[in-house]
Design a protein around this nucleic acid. Structure first.
Length: 423
RNA sequence: GGACAGAUGGCAGAGUGGUUGAAUGCACCGGUCUUGAAAACCGGCGUGGGUUUAUAGCCCACCCAGGGUUCGAAUCCCUGUCUGUCCGCCA
C-alpha cells in the first residue's frame, strides 16, 4: 500500500518508481481522484457539523419542555444531501484504495534496471562446484526407489511427489537443521503457525487482491492455504503498535507451502523443483525503518550460512527491476548449483518490503518516550526451501559408484548417524 | 454442531437514546513538596482524517467490524468476527 501523502508531495518520484515497474504515470489520476474525494469529504463534514449542532439544540429544547419540531424537520431535510455525499465519498475512496492496493512497491535505488531474470546481477559465488554435471534428482531418486512421482500423481495429479525411506527422512533432517541453525545461531524465534488464513492476512502481505489465482482456497470456508509462511509470520505484527526497543523481531517457521502454479504450465515439469506443495523454512524480520537495510543483509547471510554448512555451492544475485516481486523493495536470490541441470537454480529469496506490507496490515512501532507512531519495516526470506535443498543435496552428494547419496556432515545427527542413503 | 454470555481508552472498569470522546482507579508524562526517593497534592494524557504556512485553532469520524432505526446511537435492531461457559463430537 502506498502513502497518499507521499504521492501528493512527490508525484514525479512516484511516477518514476512506477515506470521502473513498467507502469505508466499513476499520479495524475490518483491525485485528481484524491482531490475529488477530499472535496466530497469536506462538504460532507460541514453538513455533519451543522446537523450535530442542530441535534444538540433539539436535545436542549426538549429538556426544557419546548417544541423542537421545526428544528427536527430542518435536520430531516439535510439527510438526502448527506446520503448522496456519503455515497460519493465512499465510492471514490474504494476506487482509490483499489488502485493503490494494486500498485507494486517502489524499488530501492540500487536495484539494477532490467526486463527479466536474465538481467539479474550476481553479487557473489560461494563454494566450489565439485560435481559439474551428473544425473538429476529424478534419476537418482527413482533408482533408489525413494522418489516417486507416479504414486503421487495417482492420488493428487501432476506437480506432487512422494518420498520414502532415506530421502523422506532427509527432507525432515534438512528442516530440522535449518530451524536449529536459525534459532540457535541466528536469533530467530521458532513459530508454529496456521497454514490456513483469511483474506485480510493475504491482503496484508500483498498476495491479495491481485494474485488470488496463484493460491489454493478451501471450498465452503473463507480460508486460503498459505503459499509461504511469510504470511502468518509477518501478520504476527498486524494491527500492533510495538515498542521499538523490542525490535528487531525475528521469526522462523517450518511449514508446507501451497501454490497453484497457475501461469507456469510447462515450466519445470520434470522433477520436484516446482510442486503444488513443498516444505520451506522461512525467516521473517520486523525492524525500524533505520535498521531494515542492515537486517536485509543479515538475513541473506543467515540463508547463505545454511547452504555453506551443507557445502552446497551457490551464488547470490540481486534481482533486477523486472524480476523483483510485487511487495519487495529489493530482493536477493540464492541459487544452488544443480549438477542435473548444470546450472544454478533458486533455493532462497530474501526481500526487504520496507513499510509496504506494514501499511497494508497496519503494523506500527513507537520510539521510546514518544507518542507518534510509524510503520515498521518487514523482511522475509527462505532459509531455505526444503524441497529444493533436498534436490541440491541429492545431486551434489550423489555417488555414481553405487547410486547412493552421501549424507552431508551437518545432517548426520538428524539422520541417525548414517553416512549414506542407499537403496 | 447445539445453547447461553460477553467485546468500551495502555490496563481495569462505569455508562442502556440527548452538550459522553466517554466517569472512576491504575499505569504513564510534567510540576509542587523532599537532602534524595516514596507518599501526598496540582495539571496533562487515545487514534485516524479534513481544513490550514502550522506538530496552533476549528471541524469530522472512531466505544470489535459492517449494515439499519432515529432529528440524535457506546446505548435499540440485523449480520459477521473474536473471547468465555456448558453440551455433543473428535486428532
Amino acid at each position: 500500500m502506498h502513502d497518499l501523502k507521499y504521492i501528493r508531495e512527490n508525484p514525479t518520484d512516484f511516477d518514476a518508481a512506477m515506470k521502473r515497474r513498467g507502469l505508466e504515470a499513476q499520479s495524475p489520476s490518483i491525485l485528481s481522484m484524491d482531490e475529488k474525494r477530499r472535496a466530497a469529504q469536506t462538504k460532507l463534514q460541514d453538513i455533519q457539523a451543522a446537523r450535530n449542532e442542530k441535534s444538540k439544540m433539539i436535545g436542549k429544547i426538549k429538556s426544557q419542555g419546548g417544541d423542537a419540531q421545526a428544528v427536527m424537520d430542518e435536520v430531516s431535510a439535510m439527510k438526502e444531501e448527506m446520503a448522496a455525499l456519503e455515497e460519493q465519498e465512499r465510492t471514490l475512496s474504494d476506487e482509490l484504495n483499489t488502485i493503490l492496493a494494486g500498485l507494486p512497491n517502489m524499488m530501492a535505488s540500487d536495484v539494477p534496471d532490467g526486463d527479466d531474470e536474465d538481467e539479474n546481477v550476481e553479487v557473489r559465488k560461494v563454494g566450489e562446484v565439485k560435481v559439474a554435471s551428473g544425473p538429476d534428482h529424478v534419476d537418482i531418486g527413482e533408482k533408489l526407489g525413494q522418489i516417486d512421482f507416479e504414486t503421487a500423481a495417482k492420488m493428487s495429479g501432476a506437480r506432487f511427489v512422494m518420498l520414502q525411506g532415506g530421502l523422506a527422512r532427509m527432507e525432515r533432517a534438512l528442516a530440522q537443521f535449518f530451524l536449529d541453525t536459525h534459532t540457535g545461531e541466528h536469533g530467530y524465534t521458532e513459530v508454529s503457525a496456521p497454514l490456513l488464513v483469511r483474506d485480510n492476512a493475504l491482503y496484508g502481505t500483498g498476495q491479495l487482491p491481485k494474485f488470488s489465482e496463484d493460491l489454493f482456497k478451501s471450498e465452503g470456508t473463507d480460508h486460503w492455504l498459505i503459499p509461504t509462511s511469510e504470511v502468518p509470520l509477518t501478520n504476527i505484527v498486524a494491527d500492533l503498535i510495538v515498542d521499538e526497543e523490542s525490535l528487531p523481531r525475528r521469526y522462523t517457521a517450518f511449514t508446507p507451502c501451497f501454490r497453484s502454479e497457475a501461469g507456469s504450465a510447462g515450466r519445470d515439469t520434470r522433477g520436484m523443483l516446482r510442486q503444488h506443495q513443498f516444505y520451506k523454512v522461512e525467516m521473517v524480520g520486523v525492524t525500524t525503518p533505520e535498521e531494515s537495510e542492515a537486517e536485509h543483509e543479515r538475513m541473506v547471510q543467515c540463508a547463505e550460512a545454511v547452504l555453506q554448512k551443507l557445502e552446497i555451492p551457490f551464488r547470490t544475485i540481486v534481482l533486477c527491476s523486472g524480476d523483483t516481486g510485487f511487495g519487495a523493495r529489493k530482493t536477493y536470490d540464492l541459487e544452488a548449483w544443480l549438477p542435473g541441470q548444470e546450472t544454478y537454480r533458486e533455493i532462497s529469496s530474501v526481500s526487504n518490503c520496507w513499510d509496504f506490507q506494514a501499511r497494508r496490515m497496519n503494523a506500527r512501532c513507537r520510539p521510546k518516550g514518544e507518542k507518534k507512531t510509524r510503520f515498521v519495516h518487514t523482511l522475509n526470506g527462505s532459509g531455505v526451501a526444503v524441497g529444493r535443498a533436498l534436490i541440491a543435496v541429492v545431486e551434489n552428494y550423489h555417488d555414481p559408484s553405487d547410486g547412493g547419496v552421501w549424507v552431508p556432515d551437518v545432517l548426520k545427527p538428524y539422520m541417525g548417524g548414517i553416512d549414506k542413503i542407499t537403496a
